[in-house]
């Protein structure tokens, strides 16, 4: 109650300090100040509780952030540690015997090196084709004069819920003759129904006059789509493109199902998955990864499976962590693509 002005009527203590503080002020100054006043008095009153809560909350959140970061930092440290030494365990977030040898070995491994470029190529092609076709269709479906837009939209929306299943899809790809070909990566995914709806909704928000006037000037639909609507959709395209890119980069099942027969089509995630599977069998069941230490030798350099796997994990994670800053801006709209889809 210390801030109660002298002239204010005395109030019972149980009454919160807001009212008495506000009344005299109300006659003197503009309204907004009245609103700002009460929290100030409260804050002074609740000092101990406030400090306690803030401290506890901050501590908890810092611990949570540490728990989130630790596994990655740990893997980074192991990958930067000498391979033979890493087998002894006990590495925290700082390498014990610093060495870049693991990365040297990984980047000299023909399979990993090529898989990295295949992942990049696949991601670029998928993003380009996906954005092109999805936006073209979204434009057609966003035109209110288009007579078939409802049935067509429905057919696409239903595919979000209907899935023939893993083996029927595999059989289709096989029967189309796309097994063990680069087409199997991008042809089946040129349209995502969810992104289509998002983009169509976005396009509907473009003022009708903009499109009308272009049409008046004689621009065809293809031209309006490419030269008018696409530039206006850049923010939405950026979000969708980034999420498609992340999805494509992270995918491994398409390689396993369709393209595992050709080494040159292997992707980084698939290679990592193979390594993970083999170390799960070898390491976990015998209960000790040290057993197969030194079993990996590449180019005359000795290292251990755990160090090697850590290095590959980092190589697979780093591109994502690099685009991460660009993703941040778009979180609010991007979450609609990510979370609701589940």
């Amino acid at each position: 109650m210390s801030s109660t002005p002298v002239g204010a009527p005395v109030q019972p203590v149980a009454q919160p300090g807001a009212e008495p503080a506000a009344k005299p002020l109300a006659t003197l100054v503009a309204r907004p100040l009245i609103r700002r006043k009460p929290p100030k008095t409260r804050r002074k009153k609740l000092t101990t509780e406030h400090v306690l809560f803030t401290t506890a909350n901050t501590t908890f959140l810092i611990v949570l952030a540490a728990v989130t970061l630790y596994p990655l930092l740990n893997t980074l440290a192991i990958s930067l540690n000498d391979g033979m030494d890493a087998v002894r365990g006990g590495i925290g977030i700082w390498p014990r015997v610093f060495s870049l040898k693991n990365y040297e070995v990984v980047l000299n491994m023909d399979t990993i090196y090529k898989a990295f470029f295949m992942s990049v190529l696949k991601t670029v092609v998928v993003v380009a084709t996906n954005l092109f076709f999805t936006s073209m269709l979204a434009y057609a479906l966003s035109r209110s004069e288009f007579v078939f837009r409802r049935p067509i939209t429905l057919i696409f929306v239903l595919t979000m819920y209907f899935d023939a299943g893993l083996i029927p899809n595999y059989l289709l790809i096989r029967d189309l003759g796309m097994l063990n070909s680069f087409q199997a990566y991008w042809v089946p995914v040129i349209i995502s129904a969810f992104n289509l709806i998002v983009l169509r909704t976005y396009m509907k928000s473009i003022p009708e006059e903009v499109i009308e006037s272009a049409r008046m000037d004689g621009a065809g639909h293809f031209r309006v789509w490419w030269q008018i609507v696409m530039p206006l959709c850049k923010p939405a395209l950026a979000v969708i493109g980034l999420f498609v890119a992340v999805g494509s980069w992270n995918a491994w099942l398409d390689t396993l199902l369709y393209n595992s027969g050709e080494q040159w089509l292997s992707t980084l995630q698939y290679e990592l998955q193979k390594l993970l599977a083999s170390s799960m069998n070898a390491g976990q069941n015998s209960g000790n990864m040290a057993n197969n230490a030194a079993s990996v030798a590449s180019g005359g350099q000795l290292t251990s499976p755990i160090a090697l796997r850590s290095a590959i994990t980092m190589v697979a994670a780093v591109p994502i962590l690099c685009v991460y800053p660009f993703l941040q801006k778009h979180f609010v709209s991007g979450l609609m693509i990510g979370s609701v889809k589940g």
Partner: peptide, 21 residues
């Protein structure tokens, strides 16, 4: 934004025996 392969790999290390990291 990390792939499930990476997350599973991290989990496999985290949950293994102490001498395997």
């Amino acid at each position: 934004f990390l792939s499930w392969v990476i997350v599973a790999s991290l989990a496999a290390v985290a949950l293994s025996l102490p001498n395997s990291g």
